[in-house]
Design a protein around this nucleic acid. Structure first.
Lengths: 151, 151
DNA sequence: TTTACTGCAAAGGGTTTGCAACATG
DNA sequence: CATGTTGCAAACCCTTTGCAGTAAA
């Protein structure tokens, strides 16, 4: 994951400004937390790591950041939203999801497979009149720690 | 989508019995509604089409049916769960999702691509110690009706 | 000095649960 | 009759929103 190809803070600042928003301390803290997490994290996980920020601020800021294209909101297996940095800041990747506990791990996909998906994607876009903006290829199952734990 | 390869009601009845559950009128109605929908539908859509059933019963029954492996619960773009019949009753397929309105369309994927995903899947299972049970390959974008509507 | 941002508390919306009545094996 | 199922209403949890005060351009 090439976090430092471009400066995340500069990019965030620029994209927020474009939307008439400010890159405040809270928002910077969220971005840092997302960078450190290096996997999609829930809002609860985010504010646990950043004491002092109101939940409502976290939700509002993440929503503003998503609007600006700095972060991405995911809904995976459970019904809790998870956030990660936008793909142009971290590189394109996919997810390995535990359906038991909801945890998510980033994975990279071989280029051939990625190309196959893109080709298929354009085909479907044409036949269904959809504007396809991205895709997700998630592998779902049971993570090591959940499979040792009794269910 | 080969709904009639095996009889859905017989299968549902059998799988529920295996779990010590009964195949009641409400559950039969839900299964019929899901068959007719032919795409993942929300609980609200389901009970709108089947007046007389309490919401709580719909939720409880869908949960029992999911446990029995008769239906599958999805969470897509919005935070509303959608249900569809289990894949062994309808055939393996993937989803075309509108991120604007949350609607979902079933799509089939070429065999080569499907094979590529399976191969990749086993690879990741090995390297991460995950038991991978299935995958999802969703194409996400904006559906025709949302792209004509003003945003 | 206007506009965005913040925290707090309250409301919202999908989902789950307690309970007493009902239905099924 | 013993156990699973139902509807109703209340509770639950994640998320959003109203508001009055604060900070930034």
């Amino acid at each position: 994951m090439q976090h430092h190809q471009i400066d995340v803070h500069d990019t965030a600042d620029e994209r927020l400004r474009r939307d008439g928003q400010r890159y405040t301390a809270n928002r910077r803290v969220l971005i840092d937390a997302l960078r450190e997490a290096d996997r999609p994290v829930t809002v609860l996980e985010l504010i646990d790591g950043t004491p002092g920020m109101a939940q409502s601020s976290a939700y509002r800021n993440l929503s503003v950041l998503e609007e600006a294209g700095v972060v991405r909101r995911l809904v995976t297996a459970d019904d809790t939203a998870r956030y990660e940095l936008a793909e142009d800041l971290t590189g394109h990747h996919h997810h390995l999801i535990c359906e038991r506990c909801g945890s998510v791990i980033d994975i990279d996909v071989p280029t051939e497979l990625e190309d196959g998906v893109s080709a298929f994607s354009s085909l479907i876009a044409d036949t269904h009149g959809f504007r396809i903006e991205h895709h997700r290829l998630d592998l779902m199952g049971v993570c090591p720690s959940c499979s040792t734990a009794a269910h």
